[in-house]
Amino acid sequence: MIVALRQYFALCGDLLYWLFAAPFRGKPWRIGHTFAQIVRIGVHAVPMSALTALTIGVVLAMQSAAQLAKLGATVYVPGLVSSSLIRELAPLVTAVIVIGRSGSSVTAELGTMKVSEEIEALEVMAIPPMSWLIVPRFLAMVIMMPLLTVFSIYVGLAGGWLISHYSLHMSTAFYVSHALQYVELRDVGIGLLKSGVFGVLVVTIACSIGLNVSGGAEGVGLATTRSVVVSLLSVFIANAVLTALFFF
């Protein structure tokens, strides 16, 4: 545990250097690699995020409609769907999807590179693995997590609209205006801040565990599991802390 924490903070320290100091010392970010990772980490996660967000929007609208109907207050369904999605569910669910899909993949890929001596080969070729492997993944995750979250919010709202429009017979204009009525710019800011923090946590945990894999194929498998578990726990804890911070 202590060793893992030491490795994690060592990686974070190196990352800070390669993000903010190295570009001014003639070692710029690798933009091409970053775009490739944006596609792998972010763009390829779009269909899964969309499907998950849609089902969550639909379920949220159905469940809230069922309860609010008893009070004759189904008019509040759009607001409940929008505020739940923007403040809580979209950042959290997107993070869970990214952990399962991209975080695990980053750990497995780096772990396999470690055990097959590819990372050592990069070092010996005087190509810093931080610059070649870690910074592009970090930038891609930090860029794509908020974008995926915004995308999930839109798709989730569309899911809520499906129920509101076809089951509760609300017009689209009514749904949109009521959905926006209960959301402040601050909520959007908090949602995006959360997604950014989740992105940093997921990618740094995935990279730290991946870079420190040992023990061949079995080690890669164990590291991937550990990466998913630690990322999930960290994201849930961070979510609770951030919610508490902005709640009071």
Partner: peptide, 19 residues
């Protein structure tokens, strides 16, 4: 060390080609 490494090459046992 990075600078020095530019002056030598290394053939790894497994090849260690980037996949």
């Amino acid at each position: 060390l990075q600078k020095l490494r530019g002056r030598y090459g290394m053939l790894f046992q497994s090849g260690a080609l980037l996949q």
